[in-house]
Design a protein around this nucleic acid. Structure first.
Length: 288
DNA sequence: TGCCCCCTGCAG
DNA sequence: CTGCAGGGGGCA
């Protein structure tokens, strides 16, 4: 589920909460969700929490826990209930708006820290994973080294966007935007949103884009990602931040999941098509 | 460059 | 019941 904004929100929140804590115990409930030897980090202290593309990294001494949430992964932090009052989501049964008690049936890995707080890795569909790698090996790891530039970096300009996308000239723009080797962190929601802001039909081939369209697309990418972070991310089904709170970006999204609803710009009903086997939303009047 | 697949669960 | 879901690796 989570794309760049959602993972970034988790990073921001988690960083404040777990930096400095000691990993006391790692309980693996689903073997496939955790790759590596957990004993290599138990007893060590958390130094840093970082993000690259849609991946989250937790550094301890010499080792990195690398997380990928894929479609349904969640990272949920709970303070020690004997020290701090329970968060609202600890209260009850899971609903659309509330996460419910931890752990639940989707919990795959549980980290326990020295102060009694816990971190739950939940993943209904089991596509996500945690990999334990040495910190020196992580940057050179294939998963990281093959990634394209981060779209929110200042150095990510329309020239860079153009040169990256043009590595796939005969591909539809929206499909190219999803390619993590070209640009990292954009997923299905923000690819659709970026195309809308840029006024570009998602089916348009990269080779047919004009310089000015790359400039608009750059704005569309940065705007939609930043706006989502501001609104707490997109919570369609699974996404909750590390404190169990939903995000509200989809309530202000222009096209994603708005099939048949009026375009916010021209009132034309938003259309849904399949592109590269992914659901794709756009306004047939505003996007050419 | 385009499918199939990894899984589970929810909506239609 | 079928189809669909914030991802992306592997394979032809």
């Amino acid at each position: 589920m989570p794309e760049l904004p959602e993972v970034e929100i988790i990073r921001l929140g988690l960083s404040k909460k777990i930096t400095g804590l000691t990993i006391k115990k790692i309980e693996i409930l689903n073997q496939k969700s955790f790759q590596g030897d957990p004993s290599k980090v138990t007893g060590s202290k958390i130094i840093k929490v970082w993000r690259r593309a849609k991946m989250l990294g937790i550094d301890s001494t010499g080792m990195t826990l690398l997380f990928h949430l894929k479609m349904s992964g969640q990272i949920i932090f709970t303070p020690n209930p004997r020290i701090l009052s329970p968060k609202p989501f600890l209260g009850g049964h899971p609903t659309k708006d509330m996460l419910g008690e931890m752990p639940n049936k989707s919990t795959r890995v549980i980290f326990e820290f020295g102060d009694g707080s816990k971190l739950y890795f939940n993943d209904q569909r089991k596509f996500g994973w945690i990999r334990l790698v040495t910190s020196t090996e992580v940057t050179s790891h294939k998963l990281i080294s093959s990634l394209g530039p981060e779209p929110l970096e200042k150095t990510f300009t329309s020239e860079l966007l153009e040169s990256q996308l043009k590595r796939r000239k005969n591909t539809a723009v929206k499909v190219a935007l999803l390619d993590q080797q070209l640009i990292s962190g954009i997923g299905n929601i923000y690819a659709c949103e970026a195309c809308f802001i840029a006024g570009i039909n998602p089916q348009k081939l990269v080779k047919d884009l004009k310089t000015q369209e790359f400039q608009k697309l750059l704005i569309g990418i940065k705007e939609s990602l930043l706006k989502s972070i501001k609104y707490g991310g997109s919570s369609k089904q699974h996404y909750f931040n590390e404190s169990g709170e939903k995000g509200y970006f989809l309530e202000v999204a222009n096209v994603y999941a708005r099939k048949g609803e009026p375009c916010r710009n021209c009132q034309t009903p938003i259309v849904k098509i399949k592109l590269g086997s992914r659901g794709t939303y756009y306004c047939p009047k505003c996007q050419h």
